Simulated assay, not measured.
Amino acid sequence: MGTPIIVQYRINAPLEKVWKALTDKNDMRSWYFDISDFELETGRQFNFYEPGNEKKYHHQGRILEIIPGQKLKYSWTYPELSSEKTFVTWELQPEGGGTLVTLIHDDIDSFKDLGEGFLRDSFRKGWNAIIGESLKLYLEK
């Protein structure tokens, strides 16, 4: 199973605004990925690619758990590269006038054989940039 990647940031925005950014596909397009088939419903599958026109790295997820305003968990796979599956969990907690965002990416070592871009350090850097820069800038503007 391995040690999960855990990334945590305090965002100066109310919990409701952060939850919407994590679960509304129109909001996600502004800071995360363009996930046109994302629907906030347990069991729903969604697909997306890295930004750009080259359709690089097909990501596929399935929503596993939703606790509105608190938790969103989904599987994370690269179906064209591996049969392995990892799990991404977003947890939100109100903190002062802002929100504490915790991301947990479990079983990440399942992808280590796919190459350098799939190593633990690459995912850790990616999540820190996505949350600590993109999400934070989007919500704190």
Results as ranks from 00 to 15, higher is better:
2 G>Q: 08
3 T>L: 08
8 Q>P: 05
10 R>E: 14
11 I>T: 04
12 N>F: 02
13 A>L: 00
16 E>L: 11
16 E>F: 12
18 V>L: 05
19 W>A: 09
19 W>P: 09
19 W>S: 03
20 K>S: 13
22 L>G: 04
23 T>I: 00
24 D>P: 12
24 D>K: 01
24 D>S: 10
26 N>F: 02
27 D>P: 05
27 D>K: 07
29 R>A: 15
29 R>I: 10
30 S>M: 03
30 S>Q: 10
30 S>L: 08
31 W>F: 02
32 Y>A: 12
33 F>E: 05
33 F>G: 03
33 F>N: 00
36 S>L: 04
43 G>W: 01
47 N>I: 08
48 F>K: 01
48 F>V: 10
48 F>G: 10
49 Y>L: 04
53 N>I: 01
54 E>L: 05
55 K>T: 04
56 K>R: 14
56 K>V: 14
58 H>S: 09
60 Q>I: 11
60 Q>L: 02
61 G>Y: 12
61 G>Q: 13
62 R>S: 01
62 R>N: 10
62 R>D: 02
64 L>D: 07
64 L>G: 01
64 L>R: 09
64 L>A: 07
65 E>R: 14
65 E>H: 13
67 I>S: 13
67 I>W: 06
68 P>N: 02
68 P>L: 06
68 P>A: 03
71 K>M: 13
71 K>V: 02
72 L>V: 06
73 K>A: 12
75 S>G: 09
76 W>R: 10
77 T>L: 05
78 Y>Q: 13
78 Y>G: 14
78 Y>H: 13
82 S>Q: 01
82 S>P: 00
82 S>E: 06
84 E>R: 00
86 T>R: 03
86 T>M: 00
86 T>W: 03
87 F>K: 02
89 T>D: 07
89 T>Y: 06
91 E>G: 03
92 L>D: 06
92 L>A: 05
94 P>V: 14
94 P>G: 11
96 G>M: 13
96 G>E: 14
97 G>D: 14
98 G>L: 02
100 L>A: 03
100 L>Q: 12
101 V>F: 01
102 T>E: 09
104 I>S: 09
106 D>L: 01
106 D>K: 08
108 I>G: 07
108 I>S: 04
108 I>Y: 05
109 D>K: 06
110 S>V: 08
111 F>C: 07
113 D>T: 07
113 D>Y: 05
113 D>K: 01
114 L>S: 11
115 G>R: 00
115 G>I: 03
115 G>H: 08
116 E>H: 10
117 G>S: 13
117 G>A: 11
118 F>K: 04
118 F>W: 11
118 F>I: 00
119 L>E: 15
119 L>S: 15
119 L>H: 14
124 R>L: 14
129 A>Q: 08
130 I>H: 02
130 I>Y: 13
130 I>S: 05
132 G>L: 12
132 G>Y: 12
133 E>S: 12
134 S>E: 07
135 L>Y: 02
136 K>E: 09
136 K>G: 04
137 L>A: 15
138 Y>G: 01
139 L>G: 07
139 L>S: 05
139 L>I: 01
139 L>P: 04
